[in-house]
Simulated assay, not measured.
Amino acid sequence: MISRRTLLSAAGASALAPLALPARAQAWPQKPIRVVVTFAAGGSSDIVARLLQPGLQEKLGQPVIVDNKPGAGGTIGGADVAKAAADGYTLLLSNTAPISISPFMLAQPTYDPVKSFVHTAYIGAVPNVFVVHPAVPSKTVGELVAWIKAQTKPVNYGSGGVGSIGHIVGELFKKEYGLNMEHVPYRGSGPMHTDLLGGTLQFAIDTLTQNVPYIKDGKLRGLAVTSRARMALAPEIPTVAEAGYPKLLAENFLGISAPAGTPKDVVDKVHRATAEVLARPDIVKRLEDMGVALTKMSQPEFDGFVAKQVAEWAPAVKASGAKLN
């Protein structure tokens, strides 16, 4: 026989059950979302993240916090997100360095660029530019090669950091053409420009975006962009192929990635919110003005794009001989 106490307990549990359901089925997001940027403030990843931040906050209904975690070619930030809870509250402003390059420079990679993430929303790509201080007499890449070979000491070249595209392109440039060069890594483009504009550093391979104002003001000279076609942002600068150096073609992609295992409905919401922000004419103009070539991709297409990037860059990284200590 069932006692009166048992019946009351069962009735109480039944009455409370509906109240507990909403707590388990709360719609995402319910708290601030952190977007990790793998380079210091002032670089292209940081600029893009902060440009999208207000729109993502509006679409998702929660604060979006940009968290700069530079270092180790972007792998510090990449590992932070790869190891985070797969709940959508920690995202990565993914780019070529921590996804396609830096993991292959480590003796023991801290994450797998394909398996550790679900690549959620593609944004676009921006090329690098060979840029020199005006004191360097070179006006073309060919003249730069000749100038470097004429120097009695190694020529320092700067990049936004170890494992950046600028670093790898520089190492390929050095190896392919027998150049006496030494890499000077910075924690982002901002710190590098201090030395480059001051003449302490004479040559750099860096993202086009943040160099255009200096090139237009005559403070720096752009020799070639690493894209397939000339950029509307700086149409006077030839491509590396036009300059006679097609092997130096390299573009830095930008996107948003989440830890592997993030629920599909969360991934879909991030993808949709990003696409809606990227559809705004003012955002499109600002990104294009920065030299970002926008391309629409579905989430599965972005996953496939990353897998292809990794397959293409891994051999180039190994051929460059570049390492992360």
Rank of each mutant, 00 (worst) to 15 (best):
F104H: 05
A204M: 03
G199A: 15
S100E: 14
A20M: 14
R280I: 04
E301Q: 15
R34M: 10
S298V: 07
T96E: 03
A316Y: 13
P281S: 01
D87H: 12
K139F: 04
V277F: 09
A322S: 15
V126W: 01
A293I: 14
L248F: 13
V114L: 08
A229R: 11
V155T: 12
A146D: 14
S189Y: 05
L144H: 04
A27C: 08
A17P: 04
M290C: 04
I237C: 02
K264M: 06
M231T: 10
D282V: 06
T140L: 02
T96F: 02
Q57L: 02
P63Y: 01
G160P: 00
S257Y: 01
T194I: 15
I205G: 02
A319I: 08
I65S: 12
H119K: 13
V129W: 00
I148H: 09
H271W: 13
Y214C: 00
P154A: 10
V35G: 10
R230T: 09
Y177L: 10
A13P: 01
R228E: 11
N252L: 13
Y111L: 15
N180A: 03
T6N: 03
L278Y: 11
I101D: 05
L172T: 01
T209Q: 07
A229P: 00
K115W: 01
A79V: 06
A241S: 09
R50P: 04
G55C: 06
A314V: 03
L52P: 13
P315T: 12
K31C: 08
L172W: 05
L196W: 04
D80N: 10
T200P: 00
A40E: 09
E288M: 07
L294R: 12
R24L: 11
P113G: 09
K219V: 06
D206L: 02
P315E: 10
H133T: 06
I33A: 15
N325T: 10
H183N: 10
I33C: 14
E312V: 13
D303C: 07
S159W: 04
P32H: 02
G88C: 14
N211S: 10
M231F: 03
S257P: 04
T140A: 07
V141D: 12
V310D: 10
D206C: 00
D217Y: 00
K59P: 04
K264L: 07
R4A: 08
G166Q: 10
P32A: 14
D282Y: 00
